[in-house]
Amino acid sequence: MKLDKILNSNFYNQFENKLLDELSSIGILKKAEPDKILVEIRREINFIPIIISGIVKVKRRDGKGNGIFIHFLGENQTSAITLTYALENKISEIRLEAMTKVTYISIPAKVVNTWFHKYESWRAYYLQLNHLQTSRLIETINNLAFTSLDERIVKYLKHIIEYTKIKTIKIKHFDIARDLKVTREAISRTLKKLETQGVVKLYRNKIDYLGQL
């Protein structure tokens, strides 16, 4: 599908016609395989990715192999944090990494920054994303401080299902452990516990979620 048709299909009720035209003229439709990094830490932000399909992880990294998962991005979303860094001409302090196959629109950051003054709908889009993603960030902090590991895993799986609409999740225990900042052994042990409780069904590199959403 051509970019203009994708934009009209996905954003016709959200963006002004002039903004849709500008997005169509300067945007580049791209694809990314799982684990592909779209925006890296300690790098200048040259473009803003707007996700059309697939799931992207937003992660905080320290550049020394340590990091933590913050939240996901899904269809019609971009990272409010990345937009803020670009608006302030700062280098990125987060990583955007494809979790699944991803299709996205690449928009030059310098152009995007002018849209805050030109288009009311772009400001509303940013504020909506910022509110949602700030809530997710607070939830992540609360989970780290106050929530048991089994509850954290269930919430993590629910978030994936929220974006994919599919209750079968292709994922390794190691990847969950890395995102939730615990050992792989702890994840495997807790998933086994959840399986005995009828919450999940485990397969090799795949999890069926059987609980309530």
Rank of each mutant, 00 (worst) to 15 (best):
Q133G: 05
K167Q: 12
E139M: 14
S135H: 04
I138W: 08
R123H: 02
L132I: 10
E162Y: 04
F116Y: 13
L157W: 04
S148P: 07
S121D: 06
I153P: 01
K118E: 08
I171E: 03
N143E: 13
N130V: 03
T147F: 07
D150L: 03
T168R: 10
Q133Y: 03
R123M: 11
I138R: 13
N143G: 13
K155I: 13
K170H: 11
S135G: 04
N142E: 14
F146I: 06
I138C: 00
I153R: 02
L137W: 03
E151A: 09
K118C: 07
A145H: 13
I161Q: 08
N130M: 07
N142V: 14
S148I: 10
H159I: 03
W122R: 05
I166N: 10
T134I: 06
Y163T: 00
K118P: 00
T147H: 06
V154K: 08
R136V: 07
R123L: 09
T140P: 09
Q133P: 11
I138N: 06
H117G: 07
T164R: 12
S121K: 09
I166V: 14
E120S: 05
K165D: 12
T134M: 14
I161W: 01
Q128E: 11
Y163Q: 02
K165S: 08
K167T: 05
S148D: 06
R136Q: 10
L132T: 08
A145M: 12
R152P: 06
A145S: 15
Q133C: 09
I138V: 14
H131P: 00
R136Y: 13
S148E: 04
R136I: 01
E151F: 02
T168F: 02
I171H: 04
Y126N: 06
Y163R: 09
L157F: 09
I160T: 14
Y156H: 08
K172E: 15
Y156C: 06
E162F: 07
E151S: 12
A145Y: 13
I160F: 13
F146G: 02
K167C: 02
K118L: 12
S148W: 08
T164F: 00
L137A: 14
T168V: 15
I160A: 13
A145R: 15
Y163L: 10
Y163K: 08
L129M: 13
K158R: 08
Q128H: 11
E162W: 09
H159D: 15
K167E: 05
Q128M: 12
K172F: 04
V154T: 13
R123A: 15
